[in-house]
Each structure stands twice: as C-alpha cells, then as structure tokens.
C-alpha cells in the first residue's frame, strides 16, 4: 500500500463521517468555480454488513445498511468517488467532488487545510465528548478480596 492511497483512504473516511452541514459549509466556496461531469449520479443502495462469530471466527451476514455512492470527473480530469453510509445524495455528491479535487496538485493541499482538518477536529471533539460521558459510568466493584496479590 502506498502513501498516496493511504492519504486518499484517510480523506474518504473523513468525508464519509463528516456531519453534512459542516461538510457543505466548509467546501461550498472551494467547489463553486469548478466544473464537474457526473459519471454516476448519487445512487442509494445497500451494503451487506458482515461480522465474525465471536469476532474472530467465520464470517456471517449481520444485515444490510443503506449506502449512497457517486462518481464525478473534475475539469482537471480527476475522478472522484464516494461511498457514504445512509441516504444523503447531496453529501455523496459533495464527497465525490472533493475526492476528485483532493487528488489535484493545485487544490489538494489547500482542501486538506480548509476542509479535511477542520472536519477531523470536529469528529475528534464529538468522539471525545462521548468518551467522557461513557467514562463517567465506569464502575469500580468493591469486593472483599482486593489488592495487588
């Protein structure tokens, strides 16, 4: 696996998890001057979710989840793909457009700073707030035999 692919996997993940409103707000400006050709319009479908027995044994099918996918081509001739949990077509379109632009040398860097990093920070903040709520319910069961030995 090369590092360019890793970077792309990273931003695709951030774009998939981004709160939609934040994604639009941060990227409206960046994409408005750019032309895109729709290769595959946002399309809603399912992904079969798989799990493992005991999380390590054979796989089994847990059920489906909704997924929206989209492919666009930017005027810089890069192809952008998106695969987003849920049914938000606008989100999928925007994520595909950004995936296309993030691959261009001229815009990639700036979009990392202006879109990807702020979304990451927001996701981290939400995660950390949730983690803290959870941590407050951590138990210490007192028992008669307790200690280092």
């Amino acid at each position: 696996m090369n590092s360019i692919q890793q970077q792309r996997q990273h931003w695709m993940s951030v774009l998939a998890r981004a709160p939609s409103d934040l994604l639009y707000r941060l990227s409206d400006e960046a994409i408005k001057e750019i032309g895109f050709e729709i290769i595959r319009a946002p399309e809603i479908g399912l992904t079969q979710v798989r799990a493992r027995m005991g999380n390590q044994g054979d796989r089994f099918n847990l059920g489906d989840m909704t997924l929206t996918r989209c492919v666009v081509r930017s005027e810089m001739d890069t192809l952008g793909y998106s695969y987003i949990a849920g049914r938000n077509q606008q989100h999928a379109l925007r994520a595909a457009q950004l995936d296309a632009l993030l691959q261009t040398p001229c815009m990639g860097e700036a979009l990392q700073e202006r879109v990807i990093k702020p979304i990451e920070a927001a996701l981290e903040q939400a995660r950390s707030a949730k983690q803290q709520e959870t941590d407050e319910t951590r138990v210490d069961f007192f028992t008669l035999v307790r200690g280092e030995d």
Partner: peptide
C-alpha cells in the same frame, strides 16, 4: 429493503476496535 440494490458486502466489522459505550462482564469483576 427489497426495492434497493445491494451494491457491496462489507469487510467483517471488528468489535475489538469498538468505540465502547457499554461493556460489562459477569464472569470477571
């Protein structure tokens, strides 16, 4: 559900890496 196409099957989810909200055991305190 029957009106939608199934595009993919996921990689197996990994509950070891779960962002835990609840985790209890009745076998070890």
């Amino acid at each position: 559900r029957t009106t939608l196409n199934r595009f993919y099957s996921s990689e197996p989810i990994d509950t070891d890496g779960m962002a835990i909200e609840r985790r209890i055991s009745a076998t070890y305190k």
